[in-house]
């Protein structure tokens, strides 16, 4: 799963940013594919982006002076969520991939610490406040994109590198966003995917679908020997033997690999598979 996942992540990052010319010219892509939201967090102002960012697009509708119910974007989010849940984070999100790469760099690691559980709720606060309530209340300002989104800051860096005319325009706001990006990227060396765990509103949305999504995890209770190895290897600090479809699980598959009894399976599993196994035990 590990190598396969890395290949899928790399392919997804390349596909989402296939406008290679843009990285040299600083011109963003303007083709028709930009009317479709990509499943992961990828700023549409990135010079390579060939699709739209779902969180940015959602805020576009909420910040409009004339309110429109964002059927299109919400529909896409429901579709991606129902098919993949947070497997989007584990396999398709370019920013998640970047954090995975950074965590592989040999450095001091501290993935389990006091306060980790409480910090997880922050992403729901960010979703409610910065993506929905503030943009809807104050209009015209996409609060999450403007004040938090690290993907947008990377887009700004890439644009300014390719087009010198952009550089004089970057002021205090960019510096402030650069500090946030720096903190997130530095933290990624120590903690596994800090942005996904604590800050990402897109991950918060997909988390709600984990229990129902087609791509899911299944625990065979009759095979489980309660050795705790799955919980030990989980970088999201979940116990898959208790909550295999936790809202936090990004489906990296490390627990499946670590299970000595083959009790965990992950993929497009029919929902009644686990029920059937439970019935067999009874």
């Amino acid at each position: 799963m590990g190598k396969k996942r890395t290949i899928i992540q790399a392919l997804s990052a390349i596909l989402c940013n296939a406008n290679i010319k843009g990285f040299f010219t600083g011109q963003i892509y303007t083709g028709a594919t930009k009317s479709v939201c990509v499943p992961g967090l990828n700023c549409y102002s990135c010079p390579g982006a060939v699709g739209a960012c779902p969180i940015g697009s959602l805020q576009t509708f909420l910040t409009g002076l004339k309110f429109k119910v964002p059927y299109y974007v919400v529909g896409l989010l429901i579709f991606f969520g129902a098919v993949l849940g947070r497997a989007v984070c584990g396999f398709l999100c370019p920013f998640g991939f970047l954090q995975d790469i950074l965590f592989k760099i040999p450095f001091f690691k501290k993935n389990r610490f006091k306060g980790d559980r409480i910090l997880r709720y922050l992403k729901y606060v960010i979703l409610a406040l910065f993506v929905i309530i503030l943009p809807f209340t104050f209009k015209l300002t996409p609060f999450f994109c403007k004040y938090i989104c690290p993907s947008g800051t990377i887009a700004g860096l890439l644009l300014s590198a390719a087009d010198p005319r952009v550089r004089p325009m970057l002021g205090n706001l960019f510096e402030q966003k650069l500090v946030i990006l720096g903190i997130i990227l530095s933290a990624s060396l120590i903690v596994w995917r800090p942005f996904c765990k604590y800050l990402c509103p897109l991950g918060a949305i997909y988390g709600f679908f984990n229990k129902a999504a087609l791509y899911r995890m299944d625990l065979s209770k009759d095979k489980c020997i309660s050795c705790g190895k799955c919980a030990g290897v989980c970088n999201m600090n979940i116990d898959p033997s208790r909550t295999p479809n936790s809202m936090e699980c990004i489906r990296c598959g490390e627990c499946v690999k670590a299970c000595p009894a083959g009790a965990l399976v992950c993929g497009f599993i029919r929902q009644d598979a686990s029920q059937k196994k439970s019935e067999e035990v009874v």
Binding site: S35, V36, C37, Y44, G56, K68, Y71, Y72, V73, G152
Partner: peptide, 19 residues
């Protein structure tokens, strides 16, 4: 609504990139 998304996505989002 897909054209609204397109209209936003084909212009540089000043807020997003930190301008």
């Amino acid at each position: 609504q897909h054209t609204d998304v397109l209209a936003k996505a084909i212009r540089i989002c000043m807020e997003c990139v930190g301008i």
